[in-house]
Simulated scan of single mutants.
Amino acid sequence: MGDGTITAWIAAGAAIAGAVSGGVVTGWFALAGARRQADAAWAAGQRQADAAWDAGRRQADAQLRVATQTLDAQVTAAQRTVRRAAYVTFLAGTDLAHQRRQQWLDSAGSARAGANRDAYRAALPAVREALNVVRLEGPADVTAAAEALEQALAEAVPPDRHGPAHRAFLDAARTALSPPPPVAP
Protein backbone atom coordinates (compact mmCIF):
# COMPACT_ATOMS: atom_id res chain seq x y z
CA MET A 1 0.00 0.00 0.00
CA GLY A 2 1.15 3.31 -0.83
CA ASP A 3 1.27 6.45 1.15
CA GLY A 4 -1.85 7.72 -0.62
CA THR A 5 -3.84 4.64 0.31
CA ILE A 6 -2.79 4.84 3.93
CA THR A 7 -3.72 8.49 4.00
CA ALA A 8 -7.09 7.65 2.46
CA TRP A 9 -7.69 4.95 5.06
CA ILE A 10 -6.78 7.31 7.87
CA ALA A 11 -9.06 9.98 6.45
CA ALA A 12 -11.93 7.51 6.07
CA GLY A 13 -11.42 6.22 9.62
CA ALA A 14 -11.32 9.73 10.96
CA ALA A 15 -14.52 10.54 9.09
CA ILE A 16 -16.27 7.45 10.46
CA ALA A 17 -15.02 8.12 13.98
CA GLY A 18 -16.17 11.73 13.76
CA ALA A 19 -19.58 10.69 12.45
CA VAL A 20 -20.02 8.07 15.16
CA SER A 21 -18.80 10.26 17.96
CA GLY A 22 -20.73 13.26 16.64
CA GLY A 23 -23.94 11.25 16.61
CA VAL A 24 -23.39 10.06 20.16
CA VAL A 25 -22.56 13.55 21.33
CA THR A 26 -25.46 15.00 19.39
CA GLY A 27 -27.76 12.29 20.76
CA TRP A 28 -26.55 12.94 24.28
CA PHE A 29 -27.29 16.67 23.90
CA ALA A 30 -30.69 15.81 22.39
CA LEU A 31 -31.49 13.48 25.28
CA ALA A 32 -30.44 16.07 27.86
CA GLY A 33 -32.61 18.69 26.12
CA ALA A 34 -35.59 16.35 26.06
CA ARG A 35 -35.15 15.67 29.75
CA ARG A 36 -35.09 19.41 30.53
CA GLN A 37 -38.27 19.85 28.49
CA ALA A 38 -39.96 16.98 30.31
CA ASP A 39 -38.93 18.42 33.68
CA ALA A 40 -40.24 21.84 32.70
CA ALA A 41 -43.52 20.33 31.47
CA TRP A 42 -43.86 18.36 34.71
CA ALA A 43 -43.26 21.49 36.81
CA ALA A 44 -45.77 23.49 34.74
CA GLY A 45 -48.33 20.70 35.11
CA GLN A 46 -47.71 20.56 38.85
CA ARG A 47 -48.22 24.34 39.16
CA GLN A 48 -51.48 24.05 37.22
CA ALA A 49 -52.64 21.17 39.40
CA ASP A 50 -51.76 23.10 42.56
CA ALA A 51 -53.58 26.19 41.29
CA ALA A 52 -56.63 24.11 40.37
CA TRP A 53 -56.59 22.45 43.79
CA ASP A 54 -56.39 25.83 45.56
CA ALA A 55 -59.18 27.27 43.41
CA GLY A 56 -61.37 24.24 44.10
CA ARG A 57 -60.69 24.47 47.83
CA ARG A 58 -61.54 28.18 47.86
CA GLN A 59 -64.75 27.53 45.94
CA ALA A 60 -65.72 24.72 48.32
CA ASP A 61 -64.98 26.96 51.32
CA ALA A 62 -67.14 29.73 49.84
CA GLN A 63 -69.99 27.30 49.20
CA LEU A 64 -69.69 25.97 52.74
CA ARG A 65 -69.86 29.53 54.13
CA VAL A 66 -72.98 30.27 52.07
CA ALA A 67 -74.61 27.01 53.15
CA THR A 68 -73.78 27.71 56.80
CA GLN A 69 -75.15 31.24 56.60
CA THR A 70 -78.33 29.97 54.93
CA LEU A 71 -78.79 27.29 57.56
CA ASP A 72 -78.17 29.78 60.37
CA ALA A 73 -80.74 32.15 58.87
CA GLN A 74 -83.29 29.32 58.59
CA VAL A 75 -82.70 28.24 62.19
CA THR A 76 -83.06 31.82 63.40
CA ALA A 77 -86.26 32.31 61.40
CA ALA A 78 -87.73 29.07 62.76
CA GLN A 79 -86.76 30.05 66.30
CA ARG A 80 -88.42 33.45 65.86
CA THR A 81 -91.58 31.79 64.57
CA VAL A 82 -91.79 29.46 67.56
CA ARG A 83 -91.06 32.28 70.01
CA ARG A 84 -93.62 34.56 68.37
CA ALA A 85 -96.28 31.86 68.70
CA ALA A 86 -95.37 31.33 72.38
CA TYR A 87 -95.48 35.08 73.08
CA VAL A 88 -98.81 35.53 71.27
CA THR A 89 -100.37 32.63 73.15
CA PHE A 90 -99.13 34.04 76.45
CA LEU A 91 -100.42 37.54 75.62
CA ALA A 92 -103.81 36.17 74.60
CA GLY A 93 -104.06 34.35 77.92
CA THR A 94 -102.99 37.36 79.97
CA ASP A 95 -105.34 39.65 78.07
CA LEU A 96 -108.29 37.32 78.72
CA ALA A 97 -107.38 36.95 82.41
CA HIS A 98 -106.98 40.74 82.73
CA GLN A 99 -110.35 41.31 81.05
CA ARG A 100 -112.06 38.76 83.30
CA ARG A 101 -110.40 40.28 86.36
CA GLN A 102 -111.59 43.74 85.34
CA GLN A 103 -115.14 42.40 84.86
CA TRP A 104 -114.99 40.86 88.30
CA LEU A 105 -113.75 44.09 89.90
CA ASP A 106 -116.36 46.14 88.01
CA SER A 107 -119.14 43.82 89.18
CA ALA A 108 -118.13 43.93 92.86
CA GLY A 109 -121.22 43.88 95.05
CA SER A 110 -123.50 42.72 92.23
CA ALA A 111 -125.10 39.35 91.59
CA ARG A 112 -122.58 38.70 88.79
CA ALA A 113 -119.49 39.18 91.01
CA GLY A 114 -119.18 35.51 91.98
CA ALA A 115 -119.52 34.26 88.40
CA ASN A 116 -117.04 36.89 87.13
CA ARG A 117 -114.55 35.94 89.87
CA ASP A 118 -114.84 32.27 88.83
CA ALA A 119 -114.34 33.18 85.17
CA TYR A 120 -111.22 35.16 86.12
CA ARG A 121 -109.82 32.28 88.15
CA ALA A 122 -110.61 29.83 85.33
CA ALA A 123 -108.49 31.95 82.93
CA LEU A 124 -105.35 31.82 85.11
CA PRO A 125 -104.24 28.19 84.39
CA ALA A 126 -103.96 29.00 80.66
CA VAL A 127 -101.70 31.95 81.58
CA ARG A 128 -99.46 29.71 83.68
CA GLU A 129 -99.30 27.08 80.95
CA ALA A 130 -98.38 29.68 78.33
CA LEU A 131 -95.82 31.16 80.74
CA ASN A 132 -94.09 27.77 80.90
CA VAL A 133 -93.72 27.77 77.11
CA VAL A 134 -92.27 31.30 77.25
CA ARG A 135 -89.84 30.08 79.91
CA LEU A 136 -88.71 27.30 77.57
CA GLU A 137 -88.32 29.57 74.55
CA GLY A 138 -86.71 32.52 76.36
CA PRO A 139 -84.62 34.53 76.25
CA ALA A 140 -84.16 35.44 79.92
CA ASP A 141 -85.32 39.05 79.67
CA VAL A 142 -88.58 37.98 77.98
CA THR A 143 -89.08 35.29 80.62
CA ALA A 144 -88.59 37.84 83.42
CA ALA A 145 -91.06 40.25 81.80
CA ALA A 146 -93.57 37.42 81.30
CA GLU A 147 -93.28 36.38 84.95
CA ALA A 148 -93.83 40.00 86.03
CA LEU A 149 -96.92 40.22 83.81
CA GLU A 150 -98.30 36.97 85.20
CA GLN A 151 -97.73 38.24 88.76
CA ALA A 152 -99.50 41.50 87.90
CA LEU A 153 -102.66 39.46 87.29
CA ALA A 154 -102.74 38.09 90.86
CA GLU A 155 -105.81 38.92 92.97
CA ALA A 156 -103.75 40.68 95.63
CA VAL A 157 -101.90 42.95 93.17
CA PRO A 158 -103.45 46.34 92.35
CA PRO A 159 -104.97 46.35 88.83
CA ASP A 160 -102.89 49.36 87.74
CA ARG A 161 -99.75 47.17 87.69
CA HIS A 162 -101.01 45.28 84.65
CA GLY A 163 -100.42 48.09 82.12
CA PRO A 164 -96.73 48.68 82.83
CA ALA A 165 -96.03 44.93 83.06
CA HIS A 166 -97.85 44.40 79.74
CA ARG A 167 -95.78 47.12 78.02
CA ALA A 168 -92.54 45.73 79.50
CA PHE A 169 -93.36 42.27 78.15
CA LEU A 170 -94.18 43.66 74.70
CA ASP A 171 -90.90 45.59 74.61
CA ALA A 172 -88.87 42.53 75.64
CA ALA A 173 -90.70 40.31 73.14
CA ARG A 174 -90.20 42.78 70.27
CA THR A 175 -86.51 43.01 71.07
CA ALA A 176 -86.17 39.23 71.13
CA LEU A 177 -88.00 38.91 67.80
CA SER A 178 -86.07 41.65 66.04
CA PRO A 179 -83.63 40.40 63.45
CA PRO A 180 -80.00 40.65 64.49
CA PRO A 181 -77.87 43.31 62.85
CA PRO A 182 -76.12 42.13 59.69
CA VAL A 183 -72.69 40.62 60.19
CA ALA A 184 -69.89 42.10 58.13
CA PRO A 185 -68.19 39.49 55.91
Rank of each mutant, 00 (worst) to 15 (best):
V20H: 07
S21A: 15
G22T: 08
G22H: 09
V25Y: 15
V25E: 08
T26N: 10
T26C: 03
T26E: 05
W28I: 06
W28F: 14
W28E: 04
F29T: 04
L31Y: 11
A32F: 04
A32Y: 04
A32M: 07
A32N: 05
G33K: 11
A34W: 09
A34H: 10
A34R: 13
R36F: 01
R36S: 03
Q37R: 15
A38N: 04
A38C: 01
D39G: 01
D39K: 02
A40E: 05
A41W: 08
A43R: 06
A43Y: 03
A44K: 04
A44E: 06
G45Y: 03
Q46R: 12
R47K: 11
R47E: 05
R47I: 03
R47G: 01
Q48Y: 06
Q48E: 14
A49C: 02
A49L: 08
A49M: 04
D50Y: 03
A51W: 04
A51P: 01
A52W: 04
W53T: 05
W53C: 01
W53H: 08
A55S: 06
A55G: 02
A55K: 06
G56I: 02
R57I: 08
R57E: 10
R57T: 08
R58A: 14
Q59R: 14
A60D: 09
A60H: 09
D61W: 07
D61N: 09
Q63S: 07
R65K: 12
R65S: 07
V66L: 13
A67M: 10
A67Q: 14
A67C: 02
Q69S: 13
Q69I: 09
T70Q: 14
D72A: 15
A73R: 14
A73C: 03
Q74T: 11
Q74S: 13
Q74H: 14
T76I: 10
A77Q: 14
A77S: 13
A77H: 12
A78G: 05
Q79K: 13
Q79N: 12
T81G: 08
T81H: 13
R83H: 07
R83N: 11
